[in-house]
Structures are given as structure tokens and as C-alpha cells.
């Protein structure tokens, strides 16, 4: 049986792993290769690198970073952040990424998903969605530009459209839960799980071991992503897996 995946997310800026709270007070956490290797030792199933470099001309740093990590760490690597073109995807995949995640650029031009899937295969193209519940309209609304800009898209419908366009996997972040450490947005992932049949990565809200068990028991997501709880050493991946195993969830 397929194991549920635990995925640490690394924010990378100019070739260094950074960590801040809500993208402010960024502090240097360290070298991506060393951090990736440490997560591999802990039993991470996959790594997501988010390029948070603000300026376009510095973006090639992420290609070098992926090149270095892929030479030392042998597990699936996904890269997101600032991917706007097929060329951007090609450079990262050539450097050693296995998947690329598109977010704002896919909202602006959904055909980017199709073009990527046709060239590299659907399994390479992850559609990242940032979403927030809107009580006024009773739906999950999609946000772009790092969560700063609301769109008129319904997240569940956008997920379905993205899959129809060729996305092989969804990485869905609940902005309501992100940073709260109050648990994953179970309602969101239940709705998504009923709407699409591709693998879903849940992101946002985990603070305790129980939250991982909850998301895998209450929804059919395939993976859970977390950043700060792992970076700040509040939880280790081995703790999470031990807890999941004890609760009957299949992990590696």
C-alpha cells in the first residue's frame, strides 16, 4: 500500500534556506544541501523548495541550489515560486527537480499547465493553490501573489480545472490555517478529495503530532507538508511517522 508522505518545505532565498513568520523577519536557517540531507536522514519522503527570491535576475540561484541538492540527496524534489514559463520549468527539471509547482502563473494562464504536462508529463506538474474560506459567498476563494491578491476563482472548481488541464498533483495551502498551529483544514481537503482523483498535498496549520493523524484519517490526502514545526525542531519527521504508524496510517 502506498505510504502517506511527509514533506518538509524549504523557503530558499539567494541559495540559502530562510525562515520567517509570514514572510517577515527572515532569518538564515542554513545551507540547502545540509538541511536537505538532514531531512533525508530523518525520513522525509520528498522535499519542496519554494523560491522566495524577490528579484527576477537573482532567480537563477534556485537552479544552482537544486543542482547541488540533487547531487547529494536522492529523493523526489519539487520546486515552486516564480515559475512562469516552460523554460523556467525546463531549467529546474534539468537541474534535478522532479516536479515543478505553478501557482499565480497558472491562474493568469491556465494553458501553462497543459503546455508543461504535454512536454514533461502530468506527473511533473504540481498545481499549487492558496485558498481562504469566504463566508460571504460560502466558498473557498483562490489567492495569488503569495496570498496577497484575491481572485474570483472557487478553489474546488479551480482544482478540477487544473487537473483537467493536466496537473498531476495538487499542493493546497489553507490560508485560514497557515501559521495557526490549530490543525489542517479538514473540511477543505474533504471537499477537494471528493472533487479530484489526483494526489493532494495538504499544507497549513499543523502544530502537533495529532494533526497529521487527523488529516490522514479524516481526509484522503496523500501527503502533508510543513515548514516551521520541522525547521524550528518542534517536531521531527521520525516523531510524526512513529505517531502515524501507531495510529495505523501507512508510512515509509
Amino acid at each position: 500500500m502506498l505510504a502517506k508522505r511527509i514533506i518538509p518545505c524549504l523557503d530558499v532565498d539567494h541559495g540559502r534556506v530562510k525562515k520567517g513568520v509570514n514572510f517577515v523577519n527572515l532569518t538564515d536557517v542554513g545551507d540547502p544541501v545540509e538541511i536537505a540531507a538532514a531531512y533525508e536522514k530523518q525520513g522525509a519522503d520528498e522535499l519542496v523548495f519554494l523560491d522566495i527570491t524577490a528579484t527576477n535576475e537573482k532567480r537563477k540561484a534556485i537552479v544552482d541550489t537544486i543542482e547541488q541538492v540533487a547531487s547529494q540527496v536522492f529523493m523526489p524534489l519539487t520546486v515552486g515560486g516564480g515559475i512562469h514559463t516552460i523554460d523556467d520549468m525546463q531549467r529546474l527539471l534539468k537541474a534535478g527537480a522532479d516536479k515543478v509547482a505553478v501557482n499565480s502563473a497558472a491562474v493568469n494562464d491556465p494553458n501553462l499547465i497543459t503546455a508543461g504536462a504535454e512536454k514533461f508529463g502530468a506527473q511533473c506538474i504540481v498545481l499549487a493553490i492558496d485558498t481562504k474560506w469566504d463566508p460571504a459567498t460560502n466558498r473557498y476563494v483562490v489567492y495569488t501573489n503569495g496570498g496577497r491578491k484575491a481572485t474570483d476563482l472557487d478553489a474546488i472548481k479551480w482544482a478540477q480545472e487544473g487537473v483537467a488541464k493536466g496537473a498531476g498533483e495538487l499542493l493546497v495551502t489553507s490560508m485560514d490555517k497557515d501559521g495557526t498551529k490549530s490543525g489542517f483544514d479538514l473540511k477543505l481537503y474533504q471537499a477537494l478529495g471528493n472533487a479530484v482523483s489526483v494526489p493532494i498535498i495538504a499544507s497549513g496549520g499543523c502544530g502537533r503530532l495529532q494533526h497529521f493523524t487527523d488529516v490522514f484519517e479524516e481526509t484522503n490526502v496523500d501527503a502533508a507538508l510543513a515548514a516551521s514545526v520541522f525547521h524550528f525542531g518542534e517536531l521531527t519527521i521520525s516523531d510524526v511517522k512513529q505517531e502515524l504508524r501507531a495510529n495505523g496510517v501507512t508510512v515509509r
Binding site: 500500500m1 502506498l2 505510504a3 498531476g168 498533483e169 482523483s197 494526489p199 496523500d222
Partner: peptide, 28 residues
């Protein structure tokens, strides 16, 4: 779900040096 994507468990069905290291181990 199809594709079969992620880490899954291998079971060796014939004793062979190529397969020995993978028996009851997960691969991607």
C-alpha cells in the same frame, strides 16, 4: 489513484542479488 505515485513496498518473489536489498523496503 492512478498514477501510482509515491513510496510503496516491494516484496521479493525470487531470490536474486538485484532484488535482495529491496525486500520489504519502500521505493519511489
Amino acid at each position: 489513484k492512478v498514477p501510482h505515485m509515491g513510496w510503496d513496498l516491494n516484496t521479493m518473489t525470487q531470490d536474486d542479488p538485484i532484488a535482495a536489498g529491496f525486500n520489504q523496503e519502500s521505493t519511489y
